[in-house]
Design a protein around this nucleic acid. Sequence first.
DNA 1: CCATATAGTCAAGCAGCTTGACCATTGTGA
DNA 2: TCACAATGGTCAAGCTGCTTGACTATATGG
Lengths: 148, 148
Amino acid sequence: MQNSDAMALSAALLAAAGDLTRRIHDGVVARGFEGLRPAHGFAFARLAPDGATVTELAAHLGVTKQAASQLVDEIVRKGYAERRPHPADARARLVVLTGRGWACTRAAEEAAAEVVGSWAAELGEGELRSLLHGLTRIASNGPVRPGW
Amino acid sequence: MQNSDAMALSAALLAAAGDLTRRIHDGVVARGFEGLRPAHGFAFARLAPDGATVTELAAHLGVTKQAASQLVDEIVRKGYAERRPHPADARARLVVLTGRGWACTRAAEEAAAEVVGSWAAELGEGELRSLLHGLTRIASNGPVRPGW
DNA sequence: CCATATAGTCAAGCAGCTTGACCATTGTGA
DNA sequence: TCACAATGGTCAAGCTGCTTGACTATATGG
């Protein structure tokens, strides 16, 4: 593969990721959830299944636990999550989504599905599946670093 | 395509982009260019062909011209670029890469090629090409928003 | 039980970005 | 041609999200 192809692939990947982030954000706003940034979305993704501690969230986002704690303050203040005592560790607190937090998460999923749907219209179902397959294999599982 | 597939594709895309950014940055550092952030790389990409004005750079990066001007201050101070009088407009100044700036740009290209090469080893040449093809078609040409 | 590690918070500082104001030059329409 | 709006750029001030450092409370292991 040529060096220029590597650059083209890199540029396309970064552009697509930036575009996706922006469009999901726009879709979330359009569904009535304001005052959120992409970082919040990444946090929701981690909190969604069963909640998480501040420290776990910090590791997921790749920031300090102080930064993660501030982010939790913010989404708690805005009604998207709440802090509960941790069932197994009195030092820790379990951060869980509220109903509004879940609603926002579903809105983000809808927005993402919309964007991916527009890609399917552009590429066709088959090529989109191969894209999913290829990206899944090259994506590592390190911390998620927001791009918005 | 299922909703969950859309989320999987989104997550994989964002993870791959974050991974690429981090590994390019690491590769650039490993080649001896320190004190740079990913945003600088995106700026270099715009300056590389024939230089650009601060306002053009600002549009490319999606920030205010004041922010772009500060970024230029920084890379000028570090010896990667210089400001020249604009040949056709006495208000404007043309920001061009220095020799060191070009060397850094080549280092970033090498690092990107290395990462893409590792993907080729994982996926095979054919699937990588289809990845390039698919991503190129879905990537818009809006401003580049750094993710690091 | 004591020593060390871990979860979380408070406080201060910093880096990168924004808004607002301003000057110099350019382009334009009467 | 010449006032006047538009554009390129900078300076200054302020904000926000992050960091490092210090501290308390609880957990864990010898």
